[in-house]
C-alpha cells in the first residue's frame, strides 16, 4: 500500500496539472473574501456588520469554493490514466485493483486537502490584515471560525474524491467534467430554490457542504453543522465505493 501511495503521489507531482487549477481556486477564494468585506456596510443589503460572527463565518467559508476546482482535479487525475493508458502498468504491477483505487482515493483526497489549505491561507492573508485595519476584532475560536475553516478543508478534500468516482464512472474526461459542473452549477442550485424539492437540497453533496461551512445562503433549512459533515463524508465514501466497484468489475482499457 505504501508503494502504491508513493507511485500515485509521483503521478501527481511529475506532470504539470496543478498550477493553473490551483491559481484558479485561490483566486475564487480571494474573490469571495474581498467581495464580502468590500461590500459590507452597503446600505440596503441587510448583511450584518463585519463585527457580527455570522458575517465573519461567511467570510471564513470562502475557501470552500475551491471544491469546484477540486472536483475537477479529482476527475482529471483518474481520467488522464484512462486516456493515456497509464493505469495499465499500474494494474499489471498490482492486480489487486481495490488496493490501487484505495491508494488513488487517498492521494486524490490529499491533493484536494492541499488545494483547501492553499485557499484557507489566501483567505486568511486577506482577511486578517484587512479587518484589523478596519479595527474589527475577530475572535477566531469563540466565533466558530476555526470550525468553519476546518470544515472548508474537509469539503474541498471530499469533493476531490467525488471527482474520482465520477471520473471512473465516465472514463471520458470531458464528459465527466461537464457532467459534474452541470450538476454543481445548474442542478443543485435549481433544487435549492424550487419549492417542495428544495426540502431535499440539504441532503445533496452541496447541501451537506453548505451545512458544514454555512457558505450558501439558501431559501431552505440546512442540516446542523456536524450532521452536514457526516453526510458529506458519506457522499465521499459513496463515490469512492462507486470508483472501487466499477474498477474491480470492469475491464481495464
Amino acid at each position: 500500500m505504501i508503494a502504491l501511495l508513493r507511485s500515485e503521489w509521483r503521478k501527481v507531482t511529475t506532470i504539470k496539472l496543478g498550477w493553473g487549477m490551483l491559481l484558479g481556486a485561490m483566486a475564487l477564494a480571494a474573490l469571495g473574501v474581498v467581495a464580502q468585506i468590500a461590500s459590507n456596510g452597503t446600505p440596503g443589503t441587510g448583511v450584518p456588520p463585519l463585527s457580527d460572527p455570522e458575517t465573519q463565518k461567511s467570510i471564513a467559508a470562502s475557501a470552500s469554493s475551491a471544491y469546484l476546482f477540486s472536483v475537477v482535479v479529482g476527475i482529471i487525475l483518474i481520467t488522464t490514466e484512462f486516456r493515456h493508458f497509464t493505469s495499465r502498468p499500474t494494474f499489471l504491477l498490482e492486480p489487486r485493483r481495490g488496493l490501487v483505487i484505495a491508494a488513488k482515493a487517498v492521494i486524490t483526497a490529499g491533493v484536494g486537502l492541499l488545494y483547501g489549505i492553499a485557499c484557507v491561507v489566501v483567505s486568511l492573508a486577506i482577511t486578517v490584515p484587512w479587518l484589523s485595519a478596519k479595527g474589527v476584532h475577530v475572535d477566531w475560536v469563540a466565533n466558530g471560525l476555526v470550525v468553519v475553516m476546518v470544515g472548508a478543508l474537509f469539503v474541498v478534500a471530499i469533493f476531490a474524491v467525488v471527482g474520482l468516482g465520477v471520473g471512473v464512472l465516465f472514463r471520458n474526461q470531458v464528459a465527466a467534467v461537464i457532467s459534474a459542473l452541470t450538476y454543481l452549477f445548474v442542478v443543485e442550485p435549481l433544487v435549492a430554490i424550487v419549492p417542495v424539492v428544495r426540502e431535499g437540497y440539504r441532503y445533496l453533496p452541496g447541501g451537506a457542504a453548505a451545512a458544514l461551512t454555512g457558505a450558501a445562503r439558501v431559501q431552505t433549512t440546512l442540516l446542523p453543522n456536524w450532521q452536514g459533515g457526516l453526510l458529506l463524508l458519506g457522499w465521499g465514501l459513496l463515490f469512492a465505493f462507486l470508483g472501487w466497484i466499477l474498477t474491480v468489475s470492469r475491464d481495464i482499457p
Binding site: T14, I15, H84
Partner: peptide, 15 residues
C-alpha cells in the same frame, strides 16, 4: 501507456 507530459525517467520512477 505514457502521460505525454511526463519525462521518460519520471515515467519509469512512477512504476
Amino acid at each position: 501507456s505514457f502521460h505525454p507530459g511526463r519525462s521518460a525517467r519520471n515515467h519509469l520512477r512512477v512504476f
